[in-house]
């Protein structure tokens, strides 16, 4: 390693680096040391993430059933899923509906909880723990529990609804209610978002509120003009992570509904799983996975791009 560093240093002295400003020997050494320092992660990323991602891209252009060699079929998998596969569009539909409802509702609930937990309440540590608890319980156990909660006959939810003299829906046994049921269930885990927002709230300097109060701002105005702008980078982070996570919903549908009834909860990842490990169409499953990747990438980039208009970075000169 040392010799490589030394060699690199020599090169830096001897080579003129095109248009780029020339690095000094020390800067060069530092850069190399930096790369060496991150190399465990970099190698791990390249071997265990980048290579499989690129491999999956190749596989997506093949028909591959594992035992026979992959057969190159060009864009036929993409052609099929875009123009000739109703189940793909069904899976896109239910996944997008899930994301559209789940992300904003859970963000608002997380924020509301975080604001509440940021107050000087008696026992707020206990409440914080309670709200966060669902986030640390394995999703499989959570799913089993919600199967009981949603039981139309004996479940807690319908028993509560029955108090008002209304017979509740069939929840996960109805193609109409299964998706709303899984959205409702996902809200149980707003504790994760709450913790992130809470950290953000506690980072807002008290003097900003004091100044706003002196200027005559009421509570609502302080929230709109101080809290929200100061929290906006955290909101962006939470939204992006939430969108990515929501597109990857799988466990609940796999355990609770098996994608049904009908295909009412056939989320994209579940459909990918089935193609890959139930029907062993690896090529097609890889194509589906790439579609998911591109969709998530585009949406994430769009959110980051839009953030210029609504995210306030305190340190930035002339920031929004």
């Amino acid at each position: 390693m040392l010799s490589r560093q030394a060699q690199a240093g020599q090169d830096a002295d001897g080579v003129t680096a095109g248009k780029r400003p020339r690095m000094s020997g020390i800067a060069r050494k530092e850069a190399i040391a930096g790369y060496i320092a991150i190399s465990p992660w970099l190698l791990g990323f390249m071997i265990f993430q980048l290579a499989p991602i690129l491999g999956a891209f190749y596989i997506s252009s093949t028909e591959w059933r594992i035992l026979s060699a992959p057969e190159f079929i060009g864009v036929r998998n993409f052609d099929k899923l875009l123009f000739n596969d109703d189940l793909f569009w069904q899976s896109i539909k239910v996944t997008v509906i899930y994301v559209i409802f789940r992300v904003p509702i859970s963000a608002m609930l997380s924020l509301a909880l975080a604001l509440l937990m940021n107050q000087q309440l008696a026992g707020r540590r206990l409440f914080r723990t309670i709200y966060y608890l669902p986030a640390v319980i394995p999703l499989v156990a959570v799913s089993m529990m919600w199967i009981w909660i949603f039981n139309p006959e004996y479940g807690v939810l319908n028993s509560l609804i029955r108090v008002f003299g209304i017979e509740g829906p069939q929840w996960i046994h109805s193609s109409r209610w299964a998706l709303p049921a899984l959205i409702i269930m996902s809200l149980w885990q707003v504790g994760t978002g709450m913790v992130i927002f809470l950290a953000g709230l506690q980072g807002i300097p008290a003097h900003l509120y004091e100044a706003a109060t002196i200027d005559g701002a009421n509570t609502w105005q302080r929230f709109l003009k101080v809290t929200l702008p100061m929290l906006s980078p955290v909101v962006l982070f939470a939204l992006v992570m939430n969108v990515i996570g929501s597109f990857q919903i799988f466990t609940q549908a796999y355990i609770m509904t098996a994608g049904g009834p009908g295909n009412a909860t056939l989320f994209l990842v579940l459909y990918i799983y089935r193609n890959a490990f139930e029907w062993f169409h690896m090529g097609y499953a890889s194509a589906l996975a790439w579609v998911l990747f591109v969709v998530v990438l585009v949406i994430s980039l769009a959110m980051l791009r839009s953030s210029e208009h609504w995210v306030h970075y305190e340190g930035r000169v002339g920031g929004a």
Binding site: S175, P261, G262
Partner: peptide, 12 residues
Amino acid sequence: TPELNLAFLGEK
């Protein structure tokens, strides 16, 4: 199976 399940649920 997805279709027959709907029939056995009475949805179809």
